[in-house]
Structures are given as structure tokens and as C-alpha cells.
Computed example of a mutant assay.
Amino acid sequence: MNVAESELRLHLKAESDTEKLGRILAGLVSDSGQGAVVFLEGDLGMGKTTLSRGIMRGLGHEGAVKSPTYTIVEPYEHLTPPAYHFDLYRLGDPEELEYMGIRDYFQGESLCVIEWPERGQGILPVPDLLIRLGKSGDGRSALISASTTRGGRLLAGIGEQWRQGQGH
């Protein structure tokens, strides 16, 4: 399988579908025993934070999940695997990520979910998965692509679980 060509497009009819996608991804990452790097792209209001909330809740977090727009990273180290939610929207220069020691977050088996990854270009690693959220009719679409072998396995698992959950 050529992971660079692996893509899956999902129609997310409601906010609950976006959270469901996050929960599915969280379960697959948790079950794999490996971490992952996931980039979330899309315009403001397309559901990146909703998807992040689904991921964190899928890992067992019960509190609020907000976008760390001003702090850049919100750690969820109590989860298995430890998870980090990044929002680079207000990042002035990718070099700022070096000063905060961002490379340390990608060591080990953590799950790193990154909103606005294009603002960290040149510093961030290659993502396992890239999820592009956009408008689609009265809902949203998620175009999910894999960039690594690990991402390819996650993508296949998402597709399988999504189809099972949709009654197909």
C-alpha cells in the first residue's frame, strides 16, 4: 500500500459525527500501543476543536476540552497514551516552537493533535494522519490522508469502524 495515496472522505452530518470520528481515532491509537501525530486543517469554525474534544474524550478525559489558542499546548498527560493538543493559530514564527521545546512532545508514545499545523512548517514532524475539515452541504466533510505506515493502519481502522457504525 502506498500510504501517500491513502485517503478517506467522510461526511459529518452533525457535531456528534465529528466527535465520533475523534473517539474512533482515539480508540485506535490507544489500542495500537503507539502514539501518533495528527494534523487538523480547516478554516475557522470547521470543527477542529470538536474533533480534538472527541479524541480526548475517547481517551477517557471527562473535563472540558478547549482550544489552547493562547497557551499553544494543552497537555493531557493523565491519559493513555499521554496526549497533547496544540493550537498554532496565534503563533508568530515557527521558531517559537523550538523555544518551547516542541520536539520533546514527539518523543515516546504520545498522541499529538495539532490545529493550524501550517504555522509550524519546517519545525513539526511529518504527520501520521492529516485531517482536513471543510463545509459539505449542511454538514462537514473530513478528508483523511495517511503519510506514514502507522497513519495507513489508523486510516484503515477509521474506515472500517466508520462503515460498521453507519450500518453499511
Rank of each mutant, 00 (worst) to 15 (best):
N2L: 08
N2M: 11
A4E: 14
E5F: 02
E5D: 14
E7N: 11
L8T: 08
L12F: 03
A14K: 14
E15L: 10
D17I: 09
E19Y: 00
K20S: 10
A26D: 10
A26S: 03
G27T: 12
L28A: 13
S30T: 05
Q34P: 00
Q34H: 10
G35V: 11
F39Y: 15
M46H: 03
M46R: 05
M46A: 13
T50E: 14
L51A: 08
R53Q: 12
R53F: 02
R53V: 12
G54K: 04
M56N: 04
M56A: 13
R57M: 06
G58L: 08
G58Y: 09
L59F: 02
V65I: 09
S67P: 06
S67K: 03
I72V: 15
V73E: 08
E74K: 07
P75G: 11
Y76M: 05
E77G: 13
P82E: 15
Y84E: 07
D87K: 02
L88P: 04
Y89N: 06
Y89S: 05
Y89P: 01
L91R: 06
D93W: 07
P94R: 15
E96V: 09
E96C: 06
E98K: 08
Y99D: 15
M100E: 05
R103T: 10
Y105N: 06
F106W: 04
I114V: 15
I114A: 01
W116P: 00
P117K: 08
Q121I: 11
Q121E: 15
Q121N: 09
I123S: 02
P125R: 07
P127L: 08
D128E: 11
L129E: 14
L129I: 08
L129S: 05
L130E: 13
L130S: 09
I131H: 01
I131T: 05
I131R: 00
R132Y: 02
G134A: 09
G134T: 07
D138W: 05
R140I: 11
R140L: 11
I144S: 04
I144E: 14
A146K: 02
S147I: 01
T148K: 02
T149A: 13
R150V: 03
G152Q: 13
L154I: 13
L154W: 11
L154R: 04
L155E: 13
A156G: 03
I158G: 00
Q161A: 15
Q161R: 15
W162Q: 10
R163D: 13
G165P: 04
